[in-house]
Design a binder for these strands. Structure first.
Length: 567
RNA sequence: CGGGGCGUAGCGCAGCCCGGUAGCGCGCCUGCUUUGGGAGCAGGAUGCCGGAGGUUCGAAUCCUCUCGCCCCGACCA
C-alpha cells in the first residue's frame, strides 16, 4: 500500500479541542475526524486498526462457540416497554417515531432484541446452551461525550449473549467469556485487570469489568496483591486506624463548646484533633423515614454502597435537620438520639468526637457500641492507604478505561419477554442469560494511551494499521527497485506494508512515520546503500539496525513469528 | 443539568478591553534552489470574524438572543 494512495491527513499542530493523549494523537496522526460532539469518522488507518481488533475478537468469540449474527440498530419501543427499560432509561436513549407514529429507539444495547429472538426460537433444552454475538453500532445520547473516541454517542460494540438452561450453565458461559476476554485483551497488547463491578441497571448479581489502566480512564479500580480487585463503585477496604493522641482514648464523655465550628475541618482545627477522631453524621431521608449515616471524619460516604443497604435516599434539607433533630446541621451526632443509624466499619473501635445535638457543642469521648448502637457496614469510599478487606495488605488504586464487561443476567430479560424452554421433564423454565460487551474503539484508544511517546503512537504489533513502513528517501531507480523487492518479500509473508512514496523531505517522512506508529520502519536511502545497508528501526525502542537489504525481509518476518502477544 | 472556557483562513493563534482598510505562524498553489529528523528564496490564493437581532455615520470589537465545541462536576447499558 502506498502512502500517496492512502488518506492519512497528519497534522503538525494539536487541534484545540483535544485533551487526552489518544484523542490528540488520533487527530494528529490522521486516524479520525470529528463530525459532531461524540461522533467520529474513522479514516483509513483507524479503520484498519478497528478491523484488526475486531478480527481478534471474532477469532476468540468463535473459539468459545459463540455465533456471529447481526441485529438492527433501530428498535420498536414495545419490546423495551416490556422489560421496563423504555421508562427506566431517561434522556440517554435516542427516541423517534416512524411514519406511522410508532415509537422507536436507537439501540443502546441489545438484550431486549436478542431475548425477543430467543423467545421466538428457543423451545427445548436440547437447543441450549446458545451464545450469539454481533458487532453492532450502539447509540447513547451521552450527557457528556469526551476524550475523543473513548466516550461517544455512537460506537461499535461487540456484544454477546448466552442462553443456558440453569445457573450452572450460566456460570460456565460466563467463565468461557472471561477467559476469551483475557485472550482478546492480551492479544491486543493491553495491560488490563479484571475487576468486580456493579451490575447497575443491567440487573443480575455478578458482574466484572475489564479495565485498562490509564490516567485518561473514567473509573478508579482497587487492586490488591492477593488478587482482590474491584471498581471503587463497590470496592471494600479497611481504612487505617484512627490517629489518637495519648489521652484521648480513655477520655470520659463530655460536651465541649465549639461555637460556629461545624465542619470536621473546622472542629478538628479548633480542638486540635485529627479528622480520624471525628464521626461525620449525615442525616438522610430514606423511604422509611430519616436515618443517620455515620462515617469517620477522614472518610467519604459512598452513596452507592449505602443505597445497596438502605434503598434510595436523599440528603435532608437544612430545615428538616432542625425539625427532626432540633439542632442545626454541623452539630448533629450519633450520641443522644434514637434515629436509626448505619455506621461505617471504620468506626467500630475507638473514641470519637461528634456533634452533641446541641447548638454550639460537640461531644467527645464517644465510644461506638457503648454510647450508641448502629448497623455496621462498609459505606466509605476506598482510597490510597487503606488495606485490603480480604488479606490486610495495602491496596492500590488506579485510573482505568473500561474496555469490556461481563454480566450474569439470570432471568431479568427472559421473564418479561417470556423466553422459556421445556426441560427434560416437560416443565417450562425461563432461559438463564448472560451478557458480555467489548468496546473495540476503547481498545484502540487504550492501546494508544498505554503506548506512546513524545513523537507519537507506538502500536502493539497485533493491532497496528500496518506491520511495517518502508521509507525510501529518494526516487532514484536503485532505491525504488529495492523498495519494491523488500515490499514484495514482506507481503508474500502476509505482512501489511505501507510505503511512504511521497515526494517529501526525509524529515517529514520520519516525523510522520513516528507519529502514525507502525511498529517497524525500513529506511532506504543513498547514504545507507553506499555502505550496502538499509536501516531497520523499531518504533518502540527507537533502535536502528543497519542490515543488508537481502537480510531485512527475513529479519522482519522473525519479529512477527509469534503473532499471539502484541508489543 | 450545574460551573468554567472557546468559536477570526485548512490547522494553531493575535486583534476585542479602548468601534474606523482583518493579521501572524504553519499548511496550500507556482517557480527556482535544496534533499537523512517537519528546507530556503521569490511570487500567489484563501475569511458571511459561528448565526440572528440591536446600538452606531461605522461593529470581529459594545448589547441581547441563539447555535456549536471543549473542560470540571452530576449522570452513565
Amino acid at each position: 500500500m502506498y502512502f500517496s494512495g492512502t488518506f492519512i491527513p497528519t497534522l503538525r499542530e494539536t487541534p484545540a479541542e483535544a485533551e487526552s493523549i489518544s484523542h490528540i494523537l488520533m487527530l494528529r496522526a490522521g486516524y479520525v475526524r470529528q463530525l459532531a460532539s461524540g461522533l467520529y469518522i474513522y479514516l483509513p488507518l483507524a479503520w484498519r486498526v478497528m478491523n484488526r481488533i475486531n478480527k481478534i475478537i471474532r477469532e476468540e468469540m468463535d473459539a468459545i462457540g459463540a455465533q456471529e449474527i447481526s441485529m438492527p440498530g433501530l428498535h420498536p419501543a414495545d419490546i423495551w416497554q416490556k422489560t421496563g427499560r423504555w421508562s427506566d432509561i431517561g434522556d440517554e436513549m435516542f427516541r423517534l417515531k416512524d411514519r406511522g407514529g410508532r415509537d422507536m429507539c436507537l439501540g443502546m444495547t441489545h438484550e431486549e432484541i436478542i431475548t425477543w429472538l430467543a423467545s421466538m426460537e428457543l423451545r427445548s433444552y436440547r437447543q441450549l446452551p446458545q451464545t450469539w454475538y454481533q458487532m453492532q453500532a450502539k447509540f447513547r445520547d451521552e450527557a457528556r461525550p469526551k476524550s475523543g473516541i473513548l466516550r461517544t454517542r455512537e460506537f461499535i460494540m461487540k456484544d454477546s449473549y448466552s442462553f443456558d438452561k440453569d445457573e450452572d450453565g450460566l456460570k460456565e458461559s460466563y467463565r468461557k467469556h472471561a477467559e476469551a476476554y483475557h485472550r482478546i485483551f492480551q492479544r491486543c497488547g493491553l495491560k488490563f485487570h479484571q475487576v468486580q463491578s456493579d451490575p447497575g441497571m443491567m440487573g443480575g448479581a455478578t458482574a466484572h469489568e475489564f479495565m485498562a489502566p490509564s490516567p485518561a480512564g473514567e473509573d478508579t479500580i482497587v487492586l490488591c496483591k492477593c488478587g482482590y480487585s474491584a471498581n471503587t463503585e463497590l470496592a471494600l477496604s479497611v481504612p487505617p486506624p484512627q490517629k489518637l493522641k495519648g489521652d484521648e482514648k480513655d477520655r470520659a464523655l463530655e460536651d465541649i463548646a465549639t461555637p460556629d465550628k461545624r465542619t470536621v475541618t473546622e472542629v478538628s482545627g479548633f480542638l486540635k484533633a485529627d479528622p480520624s477522631c471525628f464521626i461525620k453524621s449525615l442525616l438522610l431521608i430514606g423511604k422509611d423515614g430519616p436515618f443517620l449515616a455515620l462515617v469517620r471524619g477522614d472518610q467519604e460516604l459512598h452513596e452507592k454502597k449505602l443505597t445497596e443497604i438502605t434503598g434510595e435516599f436523599r440528603a435532608a434539607q437544612k430545615d428538616e435537620v432542625k425539625t427532626i433533630l432540633g439542632v442545626a446541621a454541623g452539630f448533629i451526632g450519633p450520641y443522644n438520639n434514637t434515629l436509626k443509624k448505619i455506621a461505617d466499619i471504620s468506626l467500630k473501635d475507638g473514641t470519637y468526637i461528634s456533634g452533641a445535638n446541641k447548638e454550639g457543642f460537640h461531644t467527645r469521648g464517644i465510644k461506638p457500641g457503648v454510647h450508641f448502637q448502629a448497623e455496621w457496614h462498609d459505606i466509605h469510599v476506598a482510597r490510597e492507604g487503606d488495606t485490603c478487606s480480604t488479606c490486610g495488605a495495602e491496596i492500590m488504586l488506579e485510573k482505568a478505561i473500561e474496555i469490556g464487561n461481563i454480566f450474569q443476567l439470570g432471568t431479568k430479560y427472559s421473564l418479561p419477554l417470556k423466553a422459556v424452554y421445556l426441560d427434560e421433564n416437560g416443565k417450562e423454565n425461563p432461559v438463564i442469560m448472560g451478557s458480555y460487551g467489548i468496546g473495540p474503539a476503547r481498545i484502540a484508544a487504550s492501546a494508544i494511551e498505554q503506548n506512546n511517546d513524545k513523537d507519537g503512537i507506538i502500536w502493539p504489533q497485533s493491532i497496528a494499521p500496518f506491520d511495517v513502513e518502508i521509507i525510501p528517501l529518494d526516487a532514484e531507480s536503485e532505491i525504488v527497485e529495492l523498495t519494491g523487492t523488500i515490499y514484495k518479500g514482506l507481503i508474500d509473508e502476509k505482512l501489511d506494508v505501507l510505503i511512504d512514496d511521497r515526494d517529501e523531505r526525509p524529515g517529514v517522512k520520519f516525523k510522520d512515520a513516528d507519529l502514525i506508529g507502525i511498529p517497524y520502519q525500513i529506511v532506504i536511502g543513498k547514504k545507507g546503500l553506499k555502505e550496502g545497508v538499509v536501516e531497520l528501526k523499531s518504533r518502540r525502542t527507537k533502535e536502528t539496525e543497519k542490515i543488508a537489504p537481502s537480510e531485512v525481509v527475513k529479519k522482519v518476518i522473525g519479529f512477527f513469528q509469534s503473532r499471539i502477544v502484541g508489543t
